Amino acid sequence: MCTTCSRPSDVTIINTVGTFISTKQSCFHCMYSQVWSSQSKINRIPAGNLLLSAAISFSGSLYTKVLRLMKSMNVLMIGESTFQEHATMYQHPVIWNVWQSQQQQLISQLRDMQGSLVIGGDGRANTPGHCAKYGQYTMMELRLNKIADFQLVQSNEVGGSNLMETEGLVRAVEQLKTDDLEVGVIVTDRHPQIQKWLREELPSVTHYYDMWQKDIHENHSPLYQMCHHRPSNKQWMKQSSKACEELVSLIETKRLLKDMSKLSPLHQTSSVEAFHSVVLQFAPKLLTFGYKGMLARVCLASMHYNENQDRLQAHNKQDKAIYTLKYPKLKRGGHTVQKRKQDATFEYVDELMPKVFEDPRQYWEVWDQIIASPSLVL
């Protein structure tokens, strides 16, 4: 109805851009007309489209799945090229800016702590198998359980995927030195190249191996002298068998016996493994991303982990602790009882969103200083 003469009027669609729609209302009785838009624009970009693309990225979602959802609801959606343009111009520079800001706060906190850093380090490949494109090396301060630094290495930078983990460690150590942070203890797996590099380049750093990857039943610590489970009476193999001889020869190797003395007595890298499982939510291994896209997603995972790493156990309305049942594959139908933690928070998204609607050019210069490695030649 015409807002002037209250008579029927004609409404036509002028334009649609993703979630944006504009219409024109024309009254042929009093000749009144007006143009209506469903949302405002920021730098000539519909605000709803920019908000949608930011929400997809910041939540760790995938464009293709969101597109399928919107099509199922028959709701207009931005195109993939538009989404990628928004990510390049707005989201990725903002993510890097907020991550660097949070890291500076963490670095200040680490400098104020007593003693040198206790670091847990581990590498992660972005794809299954031995032909990964990216290698991510994570350094976590184990006393705070927060990501002190991570490095993303592309395989053609170092001559092969088997060299990415060591290179990631080297870069992470250099970054900590640049931040004027001193590493006192580092806990890693038994990677031979990492052992050699730490032994030669950082002789003053105490290097421990992760006990989580070993099976020790006695002399855990002065408090717990042995495991609480009952000893197994099951005969796995005969003492005189070939299999038993091979097992004994493996267990009694000089390298293994030597490494046993370097197992970490306190801190382990299980928290680093937990963080790597969080990265899977933002960057699934079955998908490939560009270097800067992968870097931005690991930054998001790091911010999410650092914010939620110290969640307490959840309680119901009667203030009773809540537990949940898990059914791991190794239990073959059996279950384990675990504490249910409080719901995760996403305050880092509240920090990211307002910056998306600011002038993005203030973040471009720093983001453009990151030089992506050349694409892999197949």
Rank of each mutant, 00 (worst) to 15 (best):
A274W: 01
V66P: 09
R44P: 03
G18W: 03
A372E: 15
M226Y: 05
S26N: 02
C30K: 03
L325C: 11
Q39A: 15
S302H: 01
E174A: 11
T3N: 02
L376M: 11
K234R: 10
K320W: 06
K258R: 08
C227D: 13
Y134E: 03
S277K: 14
P128A: 07
T269L: 02
H276N: 14
H304Y: 15
E80Y: 14
I322H: 08
D343K: 15
I370C: 04
Y224P: 04
H335Q: 13
S37R: 05
Q213E: 12
E347P: 06
L169F: 15
F83D: 09
V377W: 03
S101Q: 13
T269G: 06
T12C: 00
R111N: 01
Q151P: 05
K341F: 13
L287F: 14
Q151K: 08
A172G: 15
R124P: 03
C5R: 01
H207G: 09
L257P: 04
D259P: 03
I371G: 03
S108R: 11
L169V: 15
V205K: 07
G129H: 11
R340Q: 13
N126P: 08
L247Y: 03
M31F: 02
V187K: 07
T88P: 04
G129L: 08
M140Y: 09
N306Y: 10
Q103R: 08
Q318W: 07
Y348N: 11
I13C: 05
A283I: 00
N306D: 15
K214E: 14
R68Y: 09
S53V: 04
H191E: 13
G48R: 08
L163T: 11
C30P: 13
A55G: 00
E201T: 14
A54N: 04
Q193Y: 05
H335R: 12
N126E: 07
F20D: 05
F150K: 09
L223D: 07
F28Y: 02
Y224R: 06
Q175L: 06
F20P: 05
N15H: 06
V118R: 03
L62I: 14
E307Q: 13
C5Y: 00
K341C: 06
V118E: 01
K65P: 05
Q109Y: 09
S108Y: 03
Y305C: 10
L202K: 14
I371M: 04
S6F: 00
L256P: 04
Y224F: 10
V94A: 13
G48N: 12
Y291D: 07
R361F: 02
R111V: 00
T3E: 00
R297G: 08
C27E: 00
Q193E: 06
G135M: 10
N316G: 12
Y208P: 11
E157S: 15
E157D: 15
L198P: 08
T206V: 06
S53W: 04
K331L: 14
M1E: 02
T178Y: 04
H276W: 01
G60R: 01
